[in-house]
Simulated assay, not measured.
Amino acid sequence: MAAAHSAEQGPAGAVRATSVWVLAFPLAAKQGRTVPADAYAEQAAVAARRSGDPVLLAAAARAVATPRRRTGRTDE
């Protein structure tokens, strides 16, 4: 996937990858595809950490937490 490749291209690539994964997670969650959604959430967190941007890390965490909370999956 292009997002995975972008994450390996330094901080700027990690920023782009985080944005992709953050968008992919709620889409998969809304479609009921929990296994891919969880993988996207993990990829968003990894890419955000690689970016080194604390604001981006917080945004990724929030983007993942909101759909999980709405679907009752707060223990993950």
Score class of each variant (00 low, 15 high):
59 A>S: 07
53 D>P: 07
11 P>K: 13
73 R>T: 09
73 R>E: 11
62 R>V: 11
20 V>C: 07
71 T>C: 08
69 R>C: 12
56 L>A: 01
58 A>P: 05
37 A>I: 00
25 F>M: 13
46 V>K: 11
62 R>T: 14
54 P>N: 02
63 A>Q: 13
64 V>S: 12
49 R>Y: 11
5 H>R: 13
74 T>Y: 01
2 A>S: 10
47 A>Y: 03
17 A>S: 10
27 L>K: 06
61 A>I: 03
34 T>K: 10
31 Q>P: 05
67 P>D: 13
49 R>A: 14
1 M>Y: 06
1 M>R: 11
25 F>P: 03
71 T>L: 15
63 A>T: 09
49 R>G: 15
74 T>V: 09
71 T>M: 13
55 V>S: 10
5 H>Y: 14
46 V>F: 12
73 R>P: 04
73 R>N: 10
35 V>S: 05
11 P>L: 02
43 Q>R: 10
3 A>G: 07
58 A>D: 09
31 Q>I: 08
50 R>A: 15
70 R>F: 11
8 E>C: 09
46 V>T: 13
19 S>P: 08
3 A>I: 02
60 A>V: 00
13 G>D: 03
30 K>F: 06
13 G>I: 01
36 P>Y: 00
18 T>I: 00
48 A>Y: 06
65 A>L: 11
71 T>D: 08
75 D>K: 04
68 R>C: 13
2 A>V: 12
55 V>R: 11
38 D>Q: 10
57 L>T: 06
4 A>C: 05
49 R>N: 15
50 R>S: 13
53 D>F: 03
27 L>R: 07
76 E>A: 11
58 A>V: 01
42 E>Y: 07
11 P>Q: 10
29 A>C: 03
74 T>G: 07
4 A>S: 14
26 P>A: 01
66 T>G: 12
73 R>I: 04
58 A>W: 05
25 F>W: 06
7 A>F: 04
35 V>M: 06
10 G>D: 03
73 R>C: 05
11 P>G: 09
69 R>M: 13
1 M>S: 12
8 E>H: 08
72 G>S: 01
36 P>H: 00
15 V>K: 15
44 A>V: 03
65 A>Q: 12
48 A>M: 02
32 G>C: 02
17 A>W: 03
21 W>C: 02
65 A>D: 15
24 A>C: 06
52 G>N: 05
41 A>D: 04
62 R>M: 09
40 Y>Q: 08
37 A>D: 01
5 H>L: 15
76 E>R: 07
15 V>W: 07
68 R>P: 11
49 R>F: 11
39 A>H: 03
22 V>I: 15
13 G>R: 01
4 A>Y: 14
21 W>E: 05
56 L>F: 02
66 T>Q: 13
34 T>Y: 10
1 M>C: 05
6 S>W: 14
48 A>H: 05
2 A>Y: 08
15 V>M: 04
1 M>V: 04
4 A>P: 08
12 A>K: 07
55 V>W: 05
68 R>K: 13
33 R>I: 03
14 A>V: 01
6 S>F: 14
46 V>I: 15
2 A>C: 06
27 L>T: 10
58 A>G: 07
34 T>W: 12
32 G>T: 00
2 A>H: 09
41 A>M: 00
25 F>Y: 10
45 A>S: 15
51 S>A: 13
1 M>T: 09
55 V>G: 10
7 A>H: 03
64 V>D: 12
62 R>L: 13
11 P>I: 00
68 R>A: 13
62 R>C: 09
63 A>S: 15
